[in-house]
Design a protein around this nucleic acid. Structure first.
Lengths: 146, 146
DNA sequence: AAATAATTGACAACATGTTGTCAATAGTGC
DNA sequence: GCACTATTGACAACATGTTGTCAATTATTT
């Protein structure tokens, strides 16, 4: 079985996705480092910050499309860093509800500002349409695989 | 600092890259599993297979944009699996030259066939131009960050 | 209500990457 | 040739993800 022209192009896109993932992770770590965070911790704090209802670890993991166990470890780290609070869950004795702490909220707001400056500058030479088209293609491909 | 419209779109693309990376890794593991390989091992075998000259671990790592040490571990695994051979390096006593083994060559050829079938099918609903435009944007963004 | 199934957090093992450090080796400049 | 520098592989520690397993808890079925 030989690759079609489209197959060749999509193969390049797969490899480029791996590289870009690494590059974005590194950039995220640089952005988050002054706040004592990492890309992974930042990403876990995202849903906790944005979704106003308190949520369990399992809910966060489902929302992020990651395994429950990996998110649990990050959440435990964030608890130690006092970025989040555990509330007792009336619906589930052993599954605490998680909310962002005041310190966590402030941190995320500051990080969002730094990320906005970063991403605005990064987007300067690009056209909005190009970005949106690329995003759309990536989403289409991903959904096809899920 | 607020995000521009382009900044918003590019932020979505960053998050989508993380998701797509996970999806592609999972797909690669599925493809490679029948051959006793993983996405990572497959990716390391790529340069060894394609680049005809024997190369050292450090060379492979540079070519892949990864840390020397991570590649070293995978290479050691591949040696145990007899997918690659170590040749003594006349230019560097303790840095063996690596070549693909016969078994490794056969495995990669079979994997390439399986990947071609996979990627051809995945690309069916997409336009060549769309894929190439997306790829181009991703490369532009990555190079800006390096 | 009792049995069964599903969810959840905790823990372990592992895969894949990172950085830091070290000794061996190779290359460079004087 | 000798001192300094850079590269390389090996090893350790760690970050981030995975899967598997377990007991506790919750939901469902009968």
């Amino acid at each position: 079985m030989k690759r079609t022209t489209k197959g060749e192009a999509l193969t390049s896109l797969v490899l480029e996705t791996f590289r870009l993932n690494g590059t974005f992770l590194a950039a995220g770590n640089l952005l988050a480092e002054p706040f004592g965070l990492t890309s992974a911790r930042w990403q876990v704090m995202g849903p906790i910050f944005e979704f106003n209802e308190p949520m369990t670890v399992a809910q966060i993991a489902r929302r992020m499309g990651l395994a429950r166990q990996g998110v649990q470890r990050i959440v435990n780290d964030l608890k130690k860093l006092e970025m989040i609070n555990f509330l007792s869950n009336p619906d589930h004795k052993s599954a605490p509800l998680i909310t962002i702490s005041e310190a966590g909220r402030k941190t995320i707001i500051e990080l969002n500002k730094a990320q906005a400056a970063w991403v605005n500058s990064l987007s300067e030479g690009l056209s909005e349409n190009q970005i949106k088209q690329a995003l759309k293609l990536m989403e289409t491909v991903r959904k096809q695989l899920e």
